[in-house]
Design a protein around this nucleic acid. Structure first.
Lengths: 186, 186
DNA sequence: GTCTATATTTCGATAGAC
DNA sequence: GTCTATCGAAATATAGAC
């Protein structure tokens, strides 16, 4: 792997573990094994490197989610598969966690990939909810965009509950509750 | 207000805005108008002061939530009132946001008030869901603890969506979706 | 209880040799 | 492209006078 690649990958890990504010150039250099000079040769500074890392993490999340959302089964099956997908719950969402980072939220450039990814996810789920409605799987009064927002929010908030308690149990409970509600919403 | 009080209140504001990692003693001193010596006289250091601030924020959140959860109306009305309660959405949850702070999660002492508060909220909501079931407002198959976890998760995740997009709209959509699902869950 | 002085380490970056 | 040296500011305290 090239030095530039190692810098991006190390930054991705650290942003996931510690966020933007909690990640120092020094920590990135130590983890990647690169030297000071390399980092400032390949990137203009911390924000520039973080942007590259965030963009890649966002792309990866979209690819992973698309794998389930475009997978086999009915629209409803695919929504359920998305919710039941295996997750490293206690690590949280590498994209969603960035919304709690003041410096990310303060920068339109850093926030953009986060916004676009969660927006894409909501739209993708809204499409499936709409299809499920057409199949008679959901009551026609339900607003697909709203249900999609609820689905994404439950997942993101599940991470919060899990990390607070130090156990994935609360995440799982939240997902099961949502699935129970979705089951009876036909 | 005493110096010690001003230190705690300033720390509460900064923890809400910037998290634990993003809050420096210097910033606390500037906001509170206290001097270096005062801070280290009243508190052992940053973690000690943050603990006092987090405890107070947690208590305040419980008091605010209890005001709605113990309020007038049927159990279902009170759940709905909790979800519709006015919030400073873009600022996020002052308690929930701490779960994305690596140093808070790494410390059992700092994490405890966060865990206890979200746990208290889930239990309180689970009690109301149980009562609503007994009133025939919810289907008896629904698991009250799971629905409670879904409710808290949707709120916490709603903040994530709102902060990502820079607008409260996604938060509101998630809440409306959940209310629609709860309405049809009888 | 509060103040100023001082200390060590890290942050985030630049300079310039190789 | 990578390395080492250096930099000014900030982080997180401690010491000791008042």
């Amino acid at each position: 792997m090239s030095t530039s690649e190692r810098l991006i990958e190390s930054t991705r890990e650290l942003l996931w573990e510690r966020g933007y504010v909690g990640t120092s150039p020094k920590a990135i250099l130590e983890r990647s094994g690169a030297g000071q000079g390399s980092m400032y040769h390949h990137f203009r500074g911390k924000p520039d490197l973080a942007l590259a890392a965030i963009r890649r993490t966002a792309e990866e999340l979209r690819a992973t989610a698309a794998g389930v959302l475009d997978g086999p089964g009915s629209p409803y099956d695919r929504i359920e598969a998305y919710l039941r997908r295996e997750r490293d719950v206690l690590r949280g969402c590498p994209v969603g966690r960035l919304t709690m980072d003041p410096d990310v939220i303060a920068s339109d450039e850093l926030r953009a990939p986060v916004d676009e990814t969660l927006d894409w996810l909501r739209e993708r789920l809204a499409g499936l909810v709409e299809e499920a409605k057409e199949e008679g799987r959901f009551a026609p009064e339900l607003d697909a965009e709203e249900i999609a927002a609820t689905i994404v929010a439950t997942v993101q908030g599940g991470y919060v509950l899990a990390r607070a308690s130090g156990s994935p149990a609360a995440f799982d409970a939240g997902i099961r509750g949502l699935l129970a509600l979705l089951r009876t919403a036909r």
